[in-house]
Amino acid sequence: MTIAETATATTASVAAPNAARVDLDIIADLVKPGSRVLDVGCGDGSLLQLLERRRGVDGRGVEISQAGVNDCVARGLSVIQGDADRDLVHYPDQSFDYVILSQTIQATRNPKAVLSELLRIGHRAIVSFPNFGHLSIRSSLMFFGRMPQTKNLPHTWYDTPNIHFCTIKDFIVLAREMGAQVEDAQAINATGQKMAMSMPWAFWNLFGQQAVFVLKR
């Protein structure tokens, strides 16, 4: 598999099965070469593999689905079966340069506690998530009165693993509440393009389909 293919490979995470994971590329660019990385909710290991190949990181993963773990280990990645809500307590303080939570925070039972664990374990936390404030989601509720189902979020309300959606604005408020500093942030629009940093948050919140944040304490 080439790097380009790896970057767009799907993961067993809670995003759409065939959605191009532009956020993986963005995350890979944010990580310094040779650093120690823990990927929480690493799916089938696409991001970890990308990080190992492109950035030469010392990568570890945690994945809740056994199928995902088995795939990762068969690919030669250091991954354990575990739950972001329950199993992060076993990691020592500041034991990783980056702890990544990619497209997973909305599926955790206690996002605030998980985020706090990320900031404890890692010098930096990188969090990517689908923005529930995106125009298409707002319009689905407004014009159709239905819970939104989009290409990236294909689940119905009754079978979705995504139990804690948030908007970009919500996330910023939470980070501020927790005393975390936003070191970097990126938004991706519906066509998979990075949005300009100069745009105001409100603009990102309306047109950003996904967001990637780098936080530190």
């Binding site: 056994q66 773990v69 990645l77 990691y91």
Partner: peptide, 11 residues
């Protein structure tokens, strides 16, 4: 994990 060792785990 607590010892920061490299570990994979498969059930």
């Amino acid at each position: 994990n607590a010892a920061a060792a490299s570990v994979s785990f498969v059930e």
